[in-house]
Write a protein that binds this DNA or RNA. Structure first.
Lengths: 107, 107
DNA sequence: AATACATATGAACACATAAGCATATGAACA
DNA sequence: TGTTCATATGCTTATGTGTTCATATGTATT
């Protein structure tokens, strides 16, 4: 009788497909340096779209497109102030995740 | 005198470009469900390439390509056992990062 | 040495994604 | 109501990415 991997037990203990998919989707949001830069900037101060564009020296449209993704992922929120939309980080997980990753990179 | 954002202070406090780039690169590794599934499987047990292919019901070549990325990112390691290469998770950060993300998703 | 087996690699293709341009939306204020 | 300003959106293009197929590499076994 040959050794054979018992895949059943493994499969039973694997997180379900939907969770894995969602994880990957969330990571995808962090996987672009423009978005990471936006998040870092917002980590320092709440900012309008125009401000972000200025700080990152990028097109307003590009920033707007990326903010859309960040909103969908619930990583940023915004409030209106006159004609401006002021964006800020949605919660503290964002920061925690960042620090973990940074730790890994630093080693 | 109009309000104007002082971008200098912000820029001074932004992490440097290289770190941001590296962060994004690492997140990129986590941003594909195949890779996440591989990492989950390895979280449960060390496995050969063939085993992983079986468990995920995927092409051996596809797994091999993805393992390459995971190796480059130092998220997995391997040792040889006869004809087989046995892969396992490289360290505990991987798990920590996972749990943070999961928490965020669950909310 | 020859063969079988496990894994890696290169090329090709199909699909996803970011950025820029042009333009639409929508709030503020004259 | 019309104009202005900040932001969002649709379209297009260039670039990147995952998978497959075919094949190479390299280790064990006879």
């Amino acid at each position: 009788m040959e050794y054979e991997l018992n895949t059943e037990n493994l499969l039973d203990n694997m997180p379900d497909e939907e969770l894995i998919y969602n994880m990957a989707e969330l990571f995808k949001v962090f996987s672009d340096s423009t978005r990471v830069r936006i998040l870092c900037a917002l980590g320092l101060s709440e900012l309008t779209v125009g401000d972000i564009a200025k700080v990152l020296e990028m097109n307003q449209s590009a920033i707007s497109h990326q903010l859309r993704m960040l909103k969908q992922a619930r990583l940023v929120k915004f409030r209106r102030d006159g004609k401006n939309l002021i964006y800020s980080l949605a919660d503290d997980h964002v920061k925690t995740i960042f620090s973990q990753i940074t730790e890994h990179i630093m080693e």
